[in-house]
Design a protein around this nucleic acid. Structure first.
Lengths: 193, 193
DNA sequence: TGTCCTTGTTGAAGATCCTTGACGGCATGA
DNA sequence: TCATGCCGTCAAGGATCTTCAACAAGGACA
């Protein structure tokens, strides 16, 4: 039912990196036994352990499970099916998140009043652009700020430092695209007890 | 280090599905306490538990971690400055038309009632996707038709024959993107969306 | 042969996850 | 006001994951 063989997948990646169980364990900060048991599917590792192990290869967790996606190339997405990649404050809903080798990221973005991508400017490879669908947004690119309202648009080289901020008192909605596909994610830390 | 907030992500998905901790737990075959502890990052769930929970939404494990990937001229356009490339019946307004070596075409599209890209299906290189902002559109891709309404989205390989048609009695608005850009600047040749 | 290194496996002990069964808070409604 | 129901949280203990430490098998070298 699981449909995904964690042990086999780990072994495959480990061998691809030409690492022994012990060597991988050492880099990952776990014991060789852990690797052994996981590879035999004798246990189902915790996400935290799995992540430690993958980080040592390195392979992202998302990549680890990449084979799990049914490789289906979907065309239609209901609004509720878009993949939320926002941080709780602002909402970014990605179209076709699971699509393999997507050439663009198309995102339905909602910025409540006060929402802000942060004073430390974003910078990454590629190009991005979008259209403001509703509300007002303050967009700063390379030091130049502008207020955009419904119907206005933007397009810039993503290497230029940029920032989105809703300085109005109503929600702002944007549909954006960027190429090559990239998106960041809020971060957090797990704690022990 | 973790860089990925499992608890917040689970909560986000659960709320999107409008499920309580108890209801999700019931469907997943775990207890509500498990959900609670995971959402608080008090524990790092085992992969098997996480999978049971996600299966109940349903969300693939790959999708769960989709946001985990690390991220890595003229900028502003007033609505009136977008370049109209429609045919008089429907309106397509291109963002950054004159930008050299643009990697995408982002288009603000308006389809009045009855508007139609034509019975002879469009086919061209690249990929395209978009979000329906208002109204309803009938999108046919590779023989399969679907009605999309505000908030819905699509993404497909542009080589598949496709057609957009507004079969409702109100205007439909879409923001779309395609890559590589199918439209060069304002001059002459238009090839199709 | 013998030693030394590496490999992956495994039982028992320890650490963590998960469930049981409670609790208080906040609604709805008798 | 009290009952009912659903919400999310939490302590304790059982279930599972992870480590520790030992083991056997194989290769390299003398």
């Amino acid at each position: 039912m699981s449909g995904f063989n964690v042990g086999a997948r780990l072994k495959q990646l480990r061998l691809r990196a030409t690492l022994s169980q012990r060597e991988l364990a050492k880099r990952a900060g776990v014991t060789n036994s852990t690797i052994s048991l996981i590879e035999q599917n004798s246990v189902s590792p915790s996400v935290s352990s799995l992540k430690k192990i993958l980080d040592a290869m390195p392979v992202s967790i998302s990549e680890f499970f990449a084979g799990e996606q049914t490789s289906q190339e979907r065309v239609f997405y209901r609004a509720s099916e878009l993949t939320e990649i926002g941080d709780g404050q602002l909402s970014w809903r990605l179209v076709g998140a699971r699509r393999p080798n997507r050439s663009m990221s198309i995102i339905h973005e909602r910025y409540p009043p006060g929402a802000d991508t942060g004073a430390d400017m974003l910078e990454h490879e590629g190009e991005e652009g979008g259209v403001v669908v509703a509300g007002t947004i303050e967009l700063t690119v390379d030091g130049e700020a502008r207020l955009l309202t419904a119907g206005d648009a933007y397009y810039f080289d993503s290497r230029l430092p940029h920032r989105f901020r809703n300085v109005s008192d109503s929600e702002c909605v944007i549909v954006s695209a960027n190429n090559p596909p990239s998106f960041s994610d809020g971060s957090g830390e797990r704690h022990h007890h």
